[in-house]
Structures are given as C-alpha cells and as structure tokens.
Design a protein around this nucleic acid. Structure first.
Length: 471
RNA sequence: GGCGACGUAGCCAAGUGGCAAGGCAGGGGUCUGCAAAACCCCCAUCGCCGGUUCAAAUCCGGCCGUCGCCUCCA
C-alpha cells in the first residue's frame, strides 16, 4: 500500500510521487505575526507536522519550509495603535510563535524565511514578471495582470469573468482587471519601506511565498500546504506569479486543512472568537489538541467545544494507560503471542489508514486497539520482550502523530517536590487500611483527589499519579 | 448569486457496492473493604424521498439542513 494524497488542484486523491526519489520538498504558509496565535493556527501547524512526520516515517527525506509574514498592513496598523515599531512588533510575535511550536511538540522547519529578509528575491521576481509583461505599474504600485495568465483560477475553480461578480471586490477603476492584485505597494508617509526600482514601498501579500519557495526549494515543489481559507486568493495568486515567472509547474500537491470551528463559526482573528494557544495549554496537554484534531480528518472542520475537548483529554488518558509497567511474570505463551500478533496488526492498520490521505482517525483506532491488547496482556500478567515491544510500537506510532504520551512537565516538578510527602501519606493510609480504619483511609484518598493526586490500590500495593483537574 | 465541502448512535468519528472501525458518555458484570484503573458484555436499519443493482451508508436524481471561500484570514 502506498501513500495517496488528496490534491486540491485535481480535486481528487492521487498516488504520491515525488519529483526526486526519496526526497520531499514541502512549503506551508505560516502566520502573519501581529497578535497572539490561536489554536486554529496551531491546528494547521499540527496537521502539517503530522504530514511531515509520516513522510519521514515512511522513509522520505523531507525539506520543510514555513514562512513568517512580517511585513503587512495589519502589522503596521497594530503597531501604530500601540505606538510600537512594526518590525519590533512582528519580531515579538514571531518569537512567540516559535515558542508555541516548541510547546506543541511541532518539529521545527528547516528554515523560517521572513518577508523582511527576502526582499532581494521578491524584487527580482517582480522585476522579472514586469519584464515579461505579467505586471504593470500604477501610481507607484505594481499589479499582476491576471488576464495574461491563461489558466488563472485553476486551483480555486474560479473563472475570471465570474470573479468580477464577487460581492467583496472593491472596484478600483485604475486596475486593468478587478482580479489584478498588488505585487508592490508604494509606501505612504510613516510606513516602513524598502527601496526598489518602483520607488520606496513593500511587497504585496502573495509574492512573498512565491519568492521564498523559489529561493529555498526551487522552481517546482512537491507539497504546498495551508488552511483552506488560503485557496483563494492567496494560493491562486501564488500559482499565477510563480508559473508565469518560471514557466514551470509550481507545486505538485496542494493540501488544505479544514478550519477549527468554535460556536458554529470559524475561529479567526478578525471575528474575535478565538482561544489562544497559551489559553489552551494552561488547562490541557499539547497532546490533547492533537487528539482533538486527529479524531477527525484534516480536510474537515474540527468542532471545538467543552464536550469535544473533554473527550480528547479522556481519550489521551486512555492511550497513556497502555504505557504502564507490567507487574506480571509471564513472558511467553498464548497471551504473549496474542499480544505480538496484535502489535504487528496495529502497525499495518496504522499505516493503511495513514496511507489513505492521512486518515488519522483510522490510525488512532489502530492505536486504541493496541491499547486494548496491551492492557489485556497486562491483566493476564504478561511481561517481557513482547510486552515491551508492544509498548515501544505504541510510542513509535503515537510519535508519528506527534503525540508524546508524556505526563505534562509540571507534573514532574510536583513529583520531585511533593513526592516524599505523598509517599508518606500513602504509608500512613496503608497502616490505616491494615487496621481497617476505612473512614480515615478514604479521607486521605478523597482529600488528595482535588489536589490532583489520584490514588489507586492495585494488587501490587497502592500507587499514585498526578492528574490535572480539568476545569 | 458563483465555487466547494459535509449530513453515520447522546457527543466526536472511520468506512465510497457485500453482515456498520474506534474514542467519549451511558447500562450490566469481574476485581476491590469501598473506590479508581484495567478487563468482559450491552448500546446505529448511516438527513428525507425516489432510482440503478442479486446486493447501497457507499452509485445516480431530487429535496431538506449545516459549514467554508468569493481578494484580512491557518
């Protein structure tokens, strides 16, 4: 079974074949850094992190590039509102974003190009487009001429004559066609500006990604990703610029993730209905967000509410349950063989699901069946190589989805600081239980619970662990 | 109005022609002093109406409903 990927360009699933055998060149549109990132941004980053991890798992060498838009109207506006320097503001939020990526266990890209650092490449591309007649000047601005591009609209399924009827198109009589978009915008007084042959100004939004792809990955890349809200106009325009400039196909596979939905609407900065990454991570493990996202399919919307988040937290706890050590003594025999078979089966089921356009829900189902097999084996006192191998497979496959299955870092600190005291309480409780002082023994257990310490009595004696109180 | 998704159990969700995965919640049981965890068992005629077929959640047509995009957007 080989990987198949849904390609927005063809609107169907296609077998995945790379330009260069064994290597993948991949670009994902990053954020405009002007305010706190929300979990919708995290979702997109997590999804393409999963794609990259699975490609790596299946043996590809992946070169992964993601950008920061650090020169933009919204950044300038926000900076002016706050009396800050636009580049200082952008740098601040870019650093914040990189911190979020680490906290979310997202593998870092090979490069994070920024508009402000790619000006030469951007100018060169605009100049080239102008030379070939794909662009025209207008009062210090430079516009891309969509009518010059015969297959403009092929990604979004739009045609130029229809695009005119769009309700939100601002009629600008100066433009040759309403669909023409800015490659270069002249600077107004007080705005950050870069010199160019068209006068001081800054790039339009779309040209940066085209220039960065060309600079860091070459004329044709394997995978270009982003949110499905970028299909039009952003990605459509990227294609138009890049293919007009190079004469080559820009990207072979276009992948688009669905939106995170909160209270029936897309979570977005402009709508203001958002939950920031920091807010989420305050109450939940990074793994929980992955569980929520991977429960569905990456192209579909994900519903975020108390119920779905709670289910994600609990299902994560279940995955972790498979990693508990065995206290049994049986390392061979029927139960051990059954576990070995289940482990092999889980890997096959996992890969089969992932090969089908990254069917993470199916992949998780394979993991849950492995959880059951491991727990059943533990109940049957299985230990030894097969038990450890099953847990190893569990960690490995979960890792392909970017799940750490680790207890959050804070818990380790608690263990170090409070561990001896909790151990002492447990010893006292054991004495009380031996003396059948049930009321006092239960008091200790019941009072520790709201403090986040869960006590479980097992055949091997009492055990405790930290569990966050899910608010 | 144009383009495109989607509608499967209380909730999330896989499955694209052959007896409906998985998770959460719920019910019953084993274990336990009681709990918890774990394990076992139970819980769906797949939005509605037609059609094609030996056979349809799956293909075709119509209807109803939800959502996204249509130059700020992951």
């Amino acid at each position: 079974m080989a990987l198949r990927i849904y390609n927005t360009l063809s609107r169907q699933e296609e077998p995945f074949e790379t330009i260069e055998p064994g290597r993948v060149r991949m670009y994902v549109c990053g954020p405009t850094v002007y305010s706190d990132a929300h979990i919708g941004h995290a979702m997109s980053a997590i999804i393409f992190d999963m794609v990259r991890r699975y490609l790596t798992y299946t043996g590809y060498q992946v070169r992964f590039i993601s950008n920061f838009t650090d020169v933009d109207d919204k950044i300038i506006r926000r900076a002016n509102e706050q009396g800050r320097d636009p580049m200082e503001l952008a740098n601040h939020y870019a650093e914040e974003y990189l911190r979020h990526l680490r906290e979310l266990n997202i593998l870092l890209a090979d490069e994070y190009p920024r508009v402000s650092r790619e000006m030469d490449w951007i100018r060169q591309m605009i100049a080239g487009l102008e030379e070939e007649g794909y662009a025209y000047r207008l009062d210090g601005d430079v516009y891309f001429k969509v009518q010059k591009d015969p297959d403009y609209g092929k990604l979004s399924g739009r045609r130029l004559d229809e695009a005119v009827t769009g309700t939100r198109v601002e009629e600008d009589a100066r433009k040759q066609h309403p669909g023409d978009f800015a490659l270069w915008k002249s600077a107004k007084p007080g705005e950050p500006a870069w010199d160019s042959e068209w006068g001081p100004g800054r790039p339009g939004w779309h040209i940066e990604c085209s220039a960065m792809c060309l600079h860091h990955l070459g004329e044709t890349i394997d995978i270009h990703g982003g949110g499905n809200d970028l299909i039009f106009p952003h990605h459509e325009n990227e294609i138009a610029q890049s293919e007009s400039y190079t004469g080559e196909s820009f990207a072979r596979y276009w992948m688009h993730n669905g939106m995170l939905v909160l209270a029936g609407e897309k979570m977005s900065k402009s709508l203001g209905n958002l939950i920031t990454i920091d807010q989420f991570l305050k109450d939940h493990a990074a793994d929980a967000l992955r569980m929520l996202i991977f429960a569905g399919h990456y192209r579909k919307p994900v519903v975020f509410n108390a119920e779905t988040v709670d289910a994600a937290d609990r299902s994560l706890t279940r995955l972790r349950s498979a990693l508990r050590p065995s206290t049994g003594q049986i390392s061979t025999g029927e139960a051990a063989d059954t576990l070995r078979e289940a482990t092999e089966h889980a890997r096959i089921a996992f890969e089969t699901a992932m090969d089908a356009d990254f069917n993470t829900a199916g992949a998780l189902a394979a993991l849950f069946e492995l959880v059951k097999a491991i727990n059943t084996a533990r109940t049957a006192n299985v230990c030894g190589p097969f038990y450890l191998a099953a847990q190893h497979t569990m960690r490995e496959l979960a890792g392909v989805l970017g799940l750490t299955l680790q207890e959050p870092a804070a818990e380790h600190q608690v263990e170090v600081a409070a561990g001896p005291f909790i151990d002492l309480l447990l010893r006292v409780r054991t004495e009380l239980r031996t003396a059948k002082q049930w009321a006092l023994a239960d008091l200790i257990r019941n009072e520790l619970k709201p403090l986040g310490v869960v006590i479980e009595d097992t055949p091997q004696g009492p055990q405790w662990r930290i569990e966050r109180d899910e608010a």
